[in-house]
């Protein structure tokens, strides 16, 4: 069984970071995992995307045309990747910044106002964590508590940010389960 998640957004939204957190949690859960960034000639404010592949056996191709799921943090990302998500996958839309939908009826579309929820807990920069928690809760791709531990570990060196991020996770989880 293999699943692939495409994380996409603006450079600076913490796309690579949440992808790494998910990959880390999957590794801790005993899965094979690959984290593949886009590393074109891009800059802050440009597009950033990153694929995480999670599998129970050695992972072959790191190049994947049709990801199982999509976490879209901005509109260009949704427009670019929503059409290629496999049927039945979760398409998480950051509705704070994206005024449109995926246009797909064969995926599980999940609207979460990640930026607004992050601002409510005190820092818009936690929007990525809101989205990650929402995605994990909705897709059940991994055990939620394991991902929460991975977030905690990611911020181990900046411990004062942990409570805020834990709150961001909780908001994301609730939002995903409410819609």
């Amino acid at each position: 069984m293999q699943s692939e998640v495409m994380f996409a957004g603006f450079g600076g939204q913490g796309i690579l970071l949440i992808a790494k957190v998910l990959a880390h949690a999957a590794m801790e859960a005993g899965f094979e995992v690959v984290w593949i960034p886009s590393y074109g000639p891009e800059m802050r404010g440009g597009t950033a995307y990153c694929m995480v592949v999670i599998s129970d056996r050695p992972i072959g191709s790191p190049i994947i045309r049709n990801p199982g799921h999509l976490v879209a943090m901005n509109r260009p990302s949704l427009e670019k990747f929503a059409p290629v998500v496999k049927p039945g996958g979760v398409v998480l839309i950051n509705s704070s910044l994206i005024p449109v939908r995926s246009g797909r009826s064969d995926v599980d579309e999940c609207l979460v106002p990640a930026n607004d929820l992050a601002m409510e807990v005190g820092n818009v920069r936690a929007a990525n964590i809101v989205a990650l928690a929402a995605f994990v809760s909705r897709s059940r791709i991994l055990d939620y508590d394991l991902v929460r531990e991975a977030v905690r570990e990611e911020f181990a060196a900046k411990a004062k940010l942990i409570p805020l991020n834990m709150e961001a996770m909780e908001r994301g989880r609730q939002a995903a389960l409410a819609t």
Partner: peptide, 10 residues
């Protein structure tokens, strides 16, 4: 190749 350098794996 560039992917071996850029990707993360355990």
């Amino acid at each position: 190749d560039g992917l071996i350098g850029q990707m993360m794996e355990p």
